[in-house]
Design a protein around this nucleic acid. Structure first.
Length: 421
RNA sequence: GCGGGUAUAGUGUAGUGGUCAACACGUCUGGUUGUGACCCAGAAGAUCGUGGGUUCAAGUCCCACUACUCGCCCCA
């Protein structure tokens, strides 16, 4: 019989990595709350239509090949969420958040699922930290989500960070730009790689972020979308830059940063960090003023970002950043079985009730002190409390510091105070 | 969907076609009665991913499959 393994693209996060996870999610949560984002948790599963709508012609491919979709017995199709934004916008609409004080600022942390071949830092199940501001068109809101992302990475100790920004226009100006780009490329088809000729047909914007050789030269004189923006989009972009300048943030206008899907509007951004393999981006985000309508609500502007936890951790490791030391237990309670075990078990819960991190040495029979000491050492406890016959008799415990200090006998009544001291 | 690489104890590795498949770390026990880290001794733990093939002989060579991994496609 073949051994059962975890499904392709799924990860077990073992305790060694768990300390990175607790740290990153704790910092992310604290930062989001400090910025005034409120925590929301929406289902991992949504009706497939939520993710399919608004994705334009590409939606069929997405739903069939890139998402985990299940047909229920009653014929309804449900899908494991491939991102946060759609679910949060759905929750906004469904829960009448349009009548809350605007804007509504939400954050969430949890798993998302994409059915693609795993690559470094890209798994079929991975977790994201996601912040969204809905009901606000002010570019200062764009800056706020950008700063939330940036300052999280700074807090975690990342070096070499900067913003990559661009605008993806809006339904008014994006098509105009697409035409300009297509006619520029049309004259150069012989210079395009086969894959990019295909893109020219299907999704011309994607040529901009093509990794084929010679693209820099080929695109040197290509039209930039920021030169083709309508007045509204241009104003928005100028304001955004002004605010980033005011805050003295490092940013690069990257005309090759694109979003192919229609409901994305105006701001597109990524945060790049040095030394994270081929892909420098630790997060991606932008404005999606067309999404709410696309999924059947009334028009609500929104801006946000998502950042993969696994990717953040990968970057932390590559940059040689150490998480805070894993929490160590204060004490281990050791005993010799029999009556001393009863005393030890009782004491363990007394200490825990007093807020002291306590580990109990398990032993079905009498267990050697050597073995219990070794256990204490492995788990990095500060003290071992030894309980034997004489301690039971005298209502005391032997308190042994593991840092090499002198051990002493302490009355049980004074123990908690002594440990806290 | 398409390529490249890899597959040996829990982990990481070694292993010219031929004795009981080795080492490190980890785990467990012990080094006199109730004291860790370092050190020493001992133990457990692998039908060498699965299935075929070549051969007198396969962990080692060949094929297929599967898994993992790196990349491509795609990228919300």
């Amino acid at each position: 019989m073949t051994k059962i393994q975890r499904p392709t693209g799924m990860q077990d996060v073992l305790p060694d990595d768990g300390r990175y996870w607790s740290w990153v999610t704790k910092e992310a949560t604290a930062l989001a709350e400090q910025y005034g984002f409120a925590r929301i948790d929406v289902p991992i599963i949504e009706y497939t239509d939520l993710f399919a709508r608004g994705m334009g012609t590409a939606s069929d491919v997405f739903v069939q090949k890139e998402m985990y979709t299940i047909e229920e017995p009653d014929g309804k199709h449900i899908t494991l969420r491939p991102e946060f934004t759609a679910g949060l916008v759905r929750a906004y609409i469904q829960n009448g958040m349009g009548s809350w004080a605007q804007p509504v600022k939400l954050f969430s942390i949890g798993p998302i699922f994409r059915r693609e071949r795993p690559q470094a830092g890209r798994y079929r199940q991975h977790s994201q930290f996601d912040c969204e501001i809905m009901g606000e068109t002010d570019p200062a809101a764009d800056v706020e989500v950008m700063m939330a992302a940036m300052n999280l990475y700074r807090k975690l100790g990342y070096k070499g960070l900067n913003f990559q920004i661009n605008s993806t226009g809006c339904p008014v100006c994006k098509p105009v730009y697409m035409d300009a780009l297509k006619s520029y490329l049309a004259g150069r088809e012989d210079e395009l790689a086969p894959i990019d000729i295909e893109r020219l047909q299907k999704n011309p914007l994607r040529i901009l972020d093509s990794k084929e050789k010679g693209m820099d030269a080929l695109l040197a004189d290509a039209p930039h979308i920021i030169d083709h923006l309508c007045e509204d989009c241009r104003d928005h972009f100028v304001d955004l830059r002004t605010l980033l300048d005011t805050l003295e943030q490092p940013y690069t206008i990257n005309f090759r940063l694109v979003r192919g899907i229609d409901y994305y509007t105006k701001t597109v951004f990524e945060v790049w960090a040095e030394g994270i393999g081929a892909q420098a981006a630790v997060c991606g985000g932008g404005r999606y003023d067309g999404l709410a309508e696309a999924i059947g609500g009334r028009s609500v502007p929104g801006v946000g970002f998502g950042s993969g936890i696994e990717r953040i951790i990968l970057g932390i490791k590559e940059q040689g950043i150490e998480p805070p030391a894993p929490p160590s237990l204060s004490v281990l309670v050791a005993h010799f079985g029999g009556e001393s075990k009863q005393t030890a078990v009782a004491l363990t819960y007394t200490l825990r009730a007093a807020g002291i991190d306590t580990r109990l040495a398990f032993a079905r029979k009498r267990r050697s002190m050597k073995s219990q000491m070794r256990e204490a050492n492995k788990h990095n406890v500060e003290y071992v409390l030894i309980i034997g016959d004489s301690e039971v008799e005298n209502n005391t415990v032997t308190l042994r510091p593991m840092n090499g200090g002198q051990q002493e006998v302490v009355a049980v009544d004074e123990l908690v105070e002594r440990l806290r001291g």
